[in-house]
Design a protein around this nucleic acid. Structure first.
Lengths: 137, 137
DNA sequence: GTCATTTATATGTATAATGCACATAGAATA
DNA sequence: TATTCTATGTGCATTATACATATAAATGAC
């Protein structure tokens, strides 16, 4: 259901400034792969899952285009499903390469978590290391 | 079907595919702000700091352009410094708005950390680890 | 039957972040 | 003088993503 949403431009200006989205680029990809690892699915359904991972009401175009790109990259495969009622669905399956890719992502995210921990310890004032000046480490 | 099936040439190597960088867009901004909060600095020096936060050997252009944008956004300010030897340096200072912005970032990152925990618990099939508890272990 | 709605997929365009290559220039030094 | 180091900057291409719009099949209302 498309509801008319009013823009609140005259409110507080100091709200979330500029591009403040603390999620990595390509975040949609691992989220989709993780969903597909559990069970095969299709775009329209995957959109709902995506919203639980930091995406607020996905735009369809973004998701579908991402899925096509992922298939081109060989990390998912698709087939048309017409057996169910309603319009045809393009059912997606994760490939072996997709699972590998997901593994890479997990590793990368792990390291990023560590980096963020460093960020927070510096932000809160608790030094992870004695960074005075450029002295030897 | 796809006409252009030529995919990756490095299938055997299975190395880091495509844009697999698990850091958020605009990651440079909070990193710079965090550095500037400790002490004023300039581009050339800030590059080194940035490498410790997930950037492998920054390209100068990226950093300088980001700094100019940050100034335009009002989160940093700059003045030329010619007193020291060598070419003039554009010394940057974090503004009040910058500190506020950094606060937004921290909050956003905190939430994203929780999202990533969810991701990992789904990925490994285990319940999320106690990141929130600090009395653990 | 036909019209609006829901489900489902896709494209077109614009913007913004980022990487890479290259340009500019002062200062030190060989 | 010319070469190198330090320091800042621009141009261009790629890519991710947002937003708007298009297409179409099935379903339900009347």
């Amino acid at each position: 259901m498309g509801k008319e949403e009013h823009k609140k431009e005259n409110e507080a200006k100091q709200k979330e400034p500029r591009g403040l989205e603390a999620r990595p680029r390509n975040w949609l990809v691992p989220v989709i792969l993780l969903s597909l690892r559990d069970w095969n699915s299709y775009g329209y359904e995957l959109m709902e899952r995506a919203t639980t991972f930091g995406f607020g009401t996905m735009n369809p175009g973004t998701l579908y285009r991402t899925l096509r790109q992922m298939e081109k990259d060989g990390i998912v495969e698709s087939t048309w499903e017409t057996s169910k009622g309603g319009p045809a669905r393009r059912m997606y399956t994760i490939t072996e390469a997709g699972e590998t890719y997901l593994g890479f992502w997990a590793k990368s995210l792990e390291q990023y978590q560590r980096t963020m921990d460093t960020f927070f310890s510096m932000y809160t004032g608790k030094p992870p290391k004695g960074r005075d000046k450029k002295d030897e480490e």
